[in-house]
Design a protein around this nucleic acid. Sequence first.
DNA 1: AGCCAACCGTAACGTACGGTACGGTACGGT
DNA 2: ACCGTACCGTACCGTACGTTACGGTTGGCT
Lengths: 212, 212
Amino acid sequence: MKSELEISETALTERQKDVLDAALALLVEAGDKLTMTSVARRASCSKESLYKWFGDRDGLLTATVQWQASKVRGVPVSRDAFDRNALVAGLERFAADWLRVLSGKISVALNRVAVTHAGTDKHGLGRDLGGIVLENGPFAMARRLEPVLLLGREAGLLQFEQTDEAFRTFFGLVVRDVQIRLLLGDHFELGETAIERDAKRATEQFLVLYKP
Amino acid sequence: MKSELEISETALTERQKDVLDAALALLVEAGDKLTMTSVARRASCSKESLYKWFGDRDGLLTATVQWQASKVRGVPVSRDAFDRNALVAGLERFAADWLRVLSGKISVALNRVAVTHAGTDKHGLGRDLGGIVLENGPFAMARRLEPVLLLGREAGLLQFEQTDEAFRTFFGLVVRDVQIRLLLGDHFELGETAIERDAKRATEQFLVLYKP
DNA sequence: AGCCAACCGTAACGTACGGTACGGTACGGT
DNA sequence: ACCGTACCGTACCGTACGTTACGGTTGGCT
C-alpha cells in the first residue's frame, strides 16, 4: 500500500479545499492559536479526517500555506512592445500588487505562523513553513520580477550587474518597513491610494538608481 | 502596600538581570518554546521567584525584551563639523550598525517572539511585545536617524519634504529583504564585509535619491 | 540565639490541546 | 439485501506546561 501521509501537490478534493479555506480563515482570525478542534468545528469535519488527510498539525498548517500559495500565482508579463512606458507600468503594477498582498490580513497571518514556526524548528526534517513562505513570497517575487528587469536591461532602460542585487533594492524600495511593522502588530492602514502612490514612488526611485 | 507586579523600568536587581540574561540566552537557543521551568533551571532560581518578580510568563518575556532593549542604546551623533563626509560616514555607520543588530541571533529571536506574540494578542491589555520591539526597533532607529537627516538638509546636502518618508526609504535601502528572510529561517550569513559593503551601497543610493 | 525575609528546589494541580478510538450514518458497488 | 468506504461527532488519553504551594536553607538584623 502506498502512504497517504504525504500530501501530493494536486491531490486535494473539494472537501479538503474547503477544510483548508476554513483553516485559513481561522489562521487569520486567531493566529497560531488555531487548534485542530477549532478547525474541525469550523469546517464541520471530524478530527479523524484531519489527521487522516494531513497527518498532523504541522501537515495541516503546511497544506494550508501551500493551498493559499497555489491561489496567488502571479500574473505574466507581456514581452512584446517593451518600451519605457511598459517597463514603468510593469514595475508599478508589480509593486502595487506586492504591497496589496503584503498588507493583506492573510499574508500577515501566514507570515506570522511561518516566522513562529521557523523559530521552534528542528532543522532537517522535511520542508518547513518558513521555507514555503519564503519560496512563495520573496523568492517567487524575485523570479517573477527577473524577466522584467532583464527586458529592461536589454532594452537599454536599466543598467545593473547582478539581477539579484537589483531585485533586492527594488524590494527594499517597495516594502520598506511596511511588512515588519505589520508583523509586529502596528495597526496602520495601507489604503489603495497609498499603495499606488508608494508603487509609483518606488518605481521612480528604482529607475533613478538603475538608469544607464 | 504598593504592587510589586509591575516591573518599574529600572528596578532590576543584579540577580534579576542575571535571570533575564538567562532567559535571553534561552530565547535565542530555543525560541518561543522557552518554558518557565527551563528559565528557572538555567538561571538556578526557583519558579516562585520568577512569578514573584515578573508576574507571569508574559511579564517575564516582556521584561526580557525590555532588558535587551535597554542594552542597545544608540550611539550619539556629533553635531559639529558637519559636512558631506560626516553625513556619509554617519549614514554608513548607522546602516552598518543596523544591519549588524538585525542579523544578530538575539534580534532575530526577539523579533520572532514579538511577531508570534503579536498574532495571538488580545489587543487592549497593557503593552505588548510587538509594540515594545517596534518601539525599540524601527521607531528607535527613526528617532536616532532623524537628527542626522535634518542636519543633512540644513547643510544643503539632502533634500526632502517629510523626514519620515526619507527615513523609510533609507530603511528600505538598508534592510531590503534581509530581515524577513532571516525571520523566515533562511540560513544565510551576513558577514562583516557584506555588511559594510551594503551600508556603503545603501548610503550611496540614498544620497543619489535625496540629493538637492 | 531568635526572627524574618528572600530565596531555592521540587512536588503537585489544572488545563489546554495534540492525537486516538469508537460508535453511528450515508452511500456506492455487488 | 449486504458490505466496504468515507466520513461525522464525541468521548477519551497522554503530556506538556503555566501556575501554585510548601518545606528547607541562607543571611542579615536585633
